[in-house]
Design a protein around this nucleic acid. Structure first.
Lengths: 164, 164
DNA sequence: CCCTAGACGTTATAGTATAACGCTCTGTTG
DNA sequence: CAACAGAGCGTTATACTATAACGTCTAGGG
């Protein structure tokens, strides 16, 4: 009677985890306890989280956790398109795209992030025009596009309102 | 009578270094020996170079060089817009935009990189439509844009021709 | 039963970046 | 001139990010 299925996170997070588990089942991969736990931690935080932050939190439940523990889980979740890496922050965020509207595993090359340099909150965009403009420029230079990193650092509306 | 002004690099690189020095003079900053040397190393390599690679090369001429030596120089060169950082590679490349056509210090938010995952060569683009599409999307979300990272990993034409 | 492949534990290490402190040099300002 | 302030750099130590390598366990297939 482990807690992994009933839910150790908030209601909304647990629902997302269940959907992620179902998606993994469907494509023949397994959302194990550790992977589910790490995904839960990423989703709950609601902002980019570093690998070692996640490790600290994971250790609350799993004493033996070490860097490879967390990086393996993160690699899996990245492959499944369940999380993204924000390169500028060396940090990870949950993928906010709805399963109904896209294919987790194949939209990595299309995502963009807006990162607030004050509060570090990020917004995930999926604007096709940006991705297409970049892909077109790449094609003009003979490049075959694989994965893109599109991140914009700036000040979010809330922070701009607070501080001018 | 040090070698720093006469030129220790190729003819083309030395010309670029002289222009960089002039640009620094104009805005009140100083391209010191170390900074000039590091910029020369970046320009000569013609591809993204890691900080510790640069450190090794710098040590050929400066025995005492340590990580802060190289990172200080890189920070300065980034601020001046004389080099860029390729986030996906944690590596640095010389800025390839011509001074005549743009302002080094203010085009950081506009640059894009195409990175070949086979040979790791990179192409610097300055396509306004991409930057504008991203800036427009940011504005729609209430973001004030500051700096952007736009990188596309793929296979360059040469490598595609060689390996199918 | 044996074998394999995936997942994970564990230890060690590689790779990237910065903190902190002090020295020197240069230009300035009393 | 003496005192000071700031830039640049030397130096040591450390923090932070990520992976290598190898062993163990387990589930499923033959």
């Amino acid at each position: 009677m482990g807690m992994q299925s009933g839910g150790s996170f908030g209601e909304r997070t647990d629902a997302l985890l269940d959907r992620a588990a179902a998606a993994c089942d469907r494509n023949g991969s397994r959302l194990t306890d550790i992977r589910r736990h790490v995904l839960g931690l990423v989703l709950e935080s609601g902002r980019p989280v570093g690998a070692y932050d996640l490790l600290d939190r994971l250790r609350g439940a799993r004493k033996g956790a070490a860097p490879p523990t967390i990086y393996r889980a993160l690699d899996f979740l990245l492959e499944q398109g369940l999380i993204h890496k924000v390169e500028r922050l060396s940090a990870f965020v949950g993928c906010m795209q709805d399963e109904a509207t896209h294919d987790h595993a194949h939209h990595d090359h299309r995502v963009q992030f807006l990162i607030c340099s004050r509060c570090s909150r990020t917004v995930e965009l999926d604007d096709p025009s940006i991705a297409e403009a970049l892909a077109a420029a790449a094609a003009r230079h003979g490049f075959q596009a694989q994965r893109s990193t599109i991140e914009l650092e700036g000040v979010c509306g809330d922070c701009a309102a607070q501080a001018g």
